[in-house]
Amino acid sequence: MIYFDKVSKIYPDESVALNDVTFTVEPKEFITIVGHSGAGKSTLLKMLIAEEYPSAGSVFFESANIHRLRKKDMSKLRRRIGTVFQDFRLIPNKTAFENIAFAMEAAGRTDAEIQADVPHVLDLVDLGSKMWSFPHELSGGEKQRVAIARAIVNQPDIIVADEPTGNLDPINTYDIITILKKINGLGTTVLLTTHNKGVVENIGGRVITMEKGKMIRDDREGKYIL
């Protein structure tokens, strides 16, 4: 489904973020990418949504080379990938409902679909009561649940979550991971980065370990080994 082919990323100041990374993601997998800060985990995910471009190598989504797509096709691709960020990245002057609705509007869904689906996904992340709250009125855990709701509302093929629990306390972390596991159980591929040992052990799926831009381990039934 996704194929990283000898991907390297060297920034203009010559720091190496990724060094010859090759791996494949199969449908319905839940992959955890672990590593210290600066190991290249986030860069790896940014490649997938074309927020970063590789210095060498290519990234394929099905048969399409992500970084060769035209602008229009890029927008279409991004609608098939749900993204969750460490800093939530909600639109500050839109309510929880509108933040999620925006992703659906961008995908060209009808008003009827929006009215039906948004409350549904908000219930799924247990935020039905905060539908009309603005991001600044929500706690960190709640914001992240809105972000997850936004990521899943277009029924993407894959969820990409970059340190989604990085800013959260243990209880919220546990809730978020539970939600992501539930989504994965419904058939969506999940790609998640973390440096939290507890998270890795809770998920228990495939674990890829990064160090200084290189992929040093790829374990089927992974553990946090660093």
Partner: peptide, 9 residues
């Protein structure tokens, strides 16, 4: 940027 990343043209 967020708009673009969630797939807006």
């Amino acid at each position: 940027a967020v708009m673009k990343l969630v797939g807006a043209s």
